[in-house]
């Protein structure tokens, strides 16, 4: 049972070697080992999306991916989305004053970044469908949708 393993992965363009129990979710490796706390714990079972990061370029739940499966893979977190909050989504999020408590917003933005990568000009319905995986208990959904529309319009992603 147990037996720590060593895993080498790339996080925000930097190689890291971490030692952890093999079934440790990427979420806790990011947060507690690498101190990248922008990625949040919300449910641990892929129901809320607060832990959304990109794995090999695609949005994914950090809470559902054990570290043993991440050898050699590339992870981007909110901290790696842009060096200075200059990503069109981050600018749009500020322009629309989206966050309230803010806890889910890293995950929302990472999810939205995945959407715009796949579909740079989504319709409103496509936005609602794609963002269905991410909960916001403050109910900032109205502004999230508006910010994504703004980023799609204003920013070359």
């Amino acid at each position: 049972m147990g037996q720590m393993i060593t895993t080498t992965l790339t996080v925000n363009g930097k190689r890291h070697t971490v030692s952890a129990l093999p079934d440790t979710p990427l979420l806790w490796v990011l947060r507690e080992h690498l101190k990248l706390t922008g990625t949040k714990y919300g449910c641990g079972v892929g129901q809320c999306g607060a832990c959304t990061v990109h794995i090999d370029g695609k949005p994914n739940y950090a809470c559902l991916n054990p570290i043993k499966d991440l050898e050699g893979r590339s992870v981007t977190t909110i901290e790696g989305l842009s060096p200075d909050s200059s990503h069109p989504l981050q600018k749009a999020w500020i322009a629309e004053q989206v966050p309230q408590c803010g806890y889910c917003q890293s995950g929302q933005i990472m999810r939205a970044a995945g959407l715009l990568k796949e579909n740079p000009q989504p319709s409103r319905q496509e936005i609602l469908d794609y963002m269905q995986s991410n909960l916001c208990r403050c109910g900032t959904y109205v502004r999230i949708a508006r910010a994504i529309e703004r980023a799609a319009k204003e920013g070359a992603v």
Binding site: R31, E32, K35, L36, T37, G38, T39, K40, Y41, T77, I78, E79, L81, S82, S85, Q90, W93, I94, Q97, V98, P99, G102, Y103, Q105, S106, I109
Partner: peptide
């Protein structure tokens, strides 16, 4: 503009769960 918003779009906003 709310002063807490910039930190909430880049992961730097600190909640107690983030404290180390």
């Amino acid at each position: 503009r709310r002063v807490d918003v910039p930190g909430k779009v880049n992961g730097t906003a600190q909640y107690s769960i983030d404290v180390q």
